[in-house]
Structure formats: C-alpha cells, structure tokens
C-alpha cells in the first residue's frame, strides 16, 4: 500500500471528523500503528481542527456552567435518596393483571433503570479502583512518615539524657554551609550523627566519619544513604574531636584531608 496516497485520499479527515465507516475506522487504526507518517497526518489534522475550533469558539451563556456541574454531580451521586424519601403509601390504583400493556411500560422502565444502574455501577467501580490505588499509595507514604517521625522523636528524647554530649561540626573552609551534629554517649562511647546540612554525595562517593583519638584519626563509620535523620555509627572510646571526609564508596583506611567537609572538637 502506498501510504502517502492513502493519507491524501481524504480518509484521515473522514476519520477525525467522525465520518468514516466502521471498516474505515478499523483500517486506519491498524495502519497508524505501522505508519508513523499516517499517525502524524492524523494528529496534524486534529491540531489544525482544534486551533480553528478554539479560535471560533462561541461562549455559552454564563449561568450554564454551574447548572452543568450540578447535573454532573447529581448524575454521579447515588440516586437512592428518591427511593427512601417517599414513604410507601398504599396505592389507590387497582392492581392490573400482568398481561396489561401498562406492565410492558413498567417492565421497560425497570429495564432502563436496571441498565442505567448497571452502567453507573461500572462508572463507580472504575472510580473506586482509582481511589483504592491512591489510598494504598497514601497509606504506604503515611506509614513511612510515621516510622521516620517515631525514630527521630525517640532519638531526640534519648539525646537529652545527661550522659550525652552534643558536638557541633561546622563546615570547614569551602564548605561553610555544611553542618553536622554528633551526639556522643560519654558512658558507653556510642556515636549518633545528625546530618543537619550535608549535600548529596556525588556518584560512587561516600561520607566517612572520623574520630580523633590521642591525636590520630580513627574510622568512626560510613554514612549510608539511609542516614537522613539520626543514625548510629561506630562506638568510640575517648574521642577529642570528630570530622567527616568525602571518600570513595566503601570508605578509606586513612582520611583524605583535602576532602574534609566538617569538623568539631568535644
């Protein structure tokens, strides 16, 4: 098939305007998947129709908008109110035998009602599914936030104990904006760290905490990506100061002093 010939045959316009026959619609929908040129031609015509249509828009009466929204809302609110609102009263109309034509109308009306309820149920179900998905995602997020909050809160309370020493590690030259706080347990030597302001590490690099013990740097542990709030690092006895350097992934045996970001003495 010569696709260019097909494109210029008028079928694209017929399709977009809704004038194509069922067979033509099937054909063009199949062909557009295989021929990007056809797909583009359809979109082009759609866009030009859209531009022209937007330019020649005729404003509807101003009061119409609210009444349309009311209609949409009432169409999507469950229509049980009608059923419960009217108390059941004894019918004064004599019962008509089933063969009566009137019953045909009742049956037809019931069928229409049934179909309307059915399609409405489908609508509600799709809406429900969407909401259920959103709700599950929110719940997950909420759980994660709660966990984060609880651990942070427990940490903050713990750090208030008298045996804890707060060590402020300001940014060194070139890293003035960075700030880290270390909470040191003077009783057992536990080290907790709060990265107050610390930039994200470049790829394949990792922050490493060092303790200065007897004038020498001792590895105090690596900050992994989960260390966004309070995190526990290595146990250190008798530190005089703490410092953080940016090291290669996995850390180093000795600190790269040129890569020091923060430092603070106890």
């Amino acid at each position: 098939m010569d696709i260019q010939e097909y494109i210029s045959s008028g079928v694209v316009e017929a399709y977009v305007l809704g004038l194509a026959t069922v067979e033509e619609v099937q054909e063009i929908e199949n062909l557009r998947k295989q021929h990007p040129a056809l797909d583009a031609a359809i979109t082009d015509f759609e866009i030009s129709l859209e531009q022209q249509g937007m330019q020649q828009a005729a404003a509807p009466p101003p009061n119409l908008k609210e009444s349309i929204w009311e209609k949409i809302e009432s169409a999507s609110s469950v229509e049980t109110s009608k059923i419960t609102a009217d108390p059941i009263v004894e019918s004064k109309v004599p019962l008509v035998p089933l063969r009566s034509k009137a019953w045909n109308w009742v049956a037809a009306a019931a069928l229409v009602g049934f179909l309307a309820t059915g399609s409405y149920s489908v609508f509600l179900y799709s809406k429900y599914q969407k909401l259920a998905t959103n709700f599950a995602a929110l719940q997950k997020e909420n759980t994660a936030e709660k966990l984060r909050f609880n651990s942070l809160y427990a940490g903050v309370i713990k750090m208030q104990e008298t045996n804890f020493r707060k060590v402020v590690l300001p940014g060194v030259k070139g890293h003035e904006n960075d700030l880290v706080t270390v909470y040191y347990d003077t009783q057992n030597g536990d080290v907790y760290l709060l990265p107050v302001r610390l930039p994200e590490t470049p790829a394949n690099r990792q922050y490493q905490l060092w303790a200065i013990v007897d004038g020498k740097p001792v590895d105090a542990g690596l900050l992994n990506e989960n260390c966004t709030t309070l995190c526990k690092l290595k146990n250190i006895k008798n530190p005089q100061a703490f410092a953080i350097t940016l090291e290669k992934q996995g850390g180093s045996d000795v600190p790269t002093l040129s890569e020091m970001v923060v430092m603070g003495a106890i």
Binding site: E50, G53, M54, Q56, A57, A58, A59, P60, L64, K65, I68, W69, I72
Partner: peptide, 18 residues
C-alpha cells in the same frame, strides 16, 4: 471540580460552537 473548571473554561466555547 478542578478538572471540570479547567475543561469548561477551556473547551466549552469550542464545543458550543460545534
């Protein structure tokens, strides 16, 4: 409603014209 507001403001004129 937010979606409706936008769609209505944006497209009701073109639809009305058709």
């Amino acid at each position: 409603k937010q979606g409706f507001d936008y769609l209505y403001e944006h497209y009701s004129g073109a639809l009305y014209s058709v």
